[in-house]
Design a protein around this nucleic acid. Sequence first.
DNA 1: TTATTATATAAGCAATTATTCATATAAGGA
DNA 2: TCCTTATATGAATAATTGCTTATATAATAA
Lengths: 124, 124
Amino acid sequence: MSAKQSMPVCEVNHIDTEHEQTILKSSLSDNAAVDAAELFSYLSDSTRVRLLSMLATADMCVCEMADILKMSQPAVSHHLRILRQCGIVKYNKIGQRAVYYLNLDETGEIIKKLLTIVCSYEKE
Amino acid sequence: MSAKQSMPVCEVNHIDTEHEQTILKSSLSDNAAVDAAELFSYLSDSTRVRLLSMLATADMCVCEMADILKMSQPAVSHHLRILRQCGIVKYNKIGQRAVYYLNLDETGEIIKKLLTIVCSYEKE
DNA sequence: TTATTATATAAGCAATTATTCATATAAGGA
DNA sequence: TCCTTATATGAATAATTGCTTATATAATAA
């Protein structure tokens, strides 16, 4: 919140190349923005938020999650796959069931990343 | 991380109504999950992340943002509208230009909400 | 006044994402 | 063995989202 420039820049021919370079350097790179957006997209669906919220309470198998959310089993499986692919959840096969649980190592990492991104808006 | 139950529940006829009620009570409501997902969806697009990152560095008009991101003016305007509707950004009309800036009051609120959601996975 | 610039917005299209339905696999039970 | 249950996954469809093109508005300059 310190050296923030509030001066608009379209003054001369609406492009000040030097100023734009400064902005580019002090803001997130394209790649970093894509990574950040991807991270947020895991949580941008209410079904996935509820699944994570439920798994924060108890480990559960797919049929119970489908039953609680009143959704079809394949729909729940698809969301779980997204959460599995980014490592937020894992499961143990117990008999016929897949008992899902929060991968606390990975959720810790992701929460750290989220905090880093979110807090980068506060500094500067 | 304390009273977390790791016992699966499909034991009897794969539905234990009482246990499901317990899960429902201790996890996010449907409405809260929709709100949380909506919050995350604002940040689930890399263009919006970059716009916010740029606005954290300097206030800017639309044409400069479009120029830096090498995107069309309407595309940038559309993203800014989403960020405007949820209150993360605002703008001042200065002559012909709309000079956008981070609405620090609202970003502060949103960051608080995000932290509350994210941290709710840690407690319990 | 007319022309130009900066912006917003609406309509249409493309791309992505969520959901359903159908099917495949794997574990248990009869 | 065959049947049932729990799950994953693929294909098709539905819904959502992002971008383009075209147009409208408002401010300014000529």
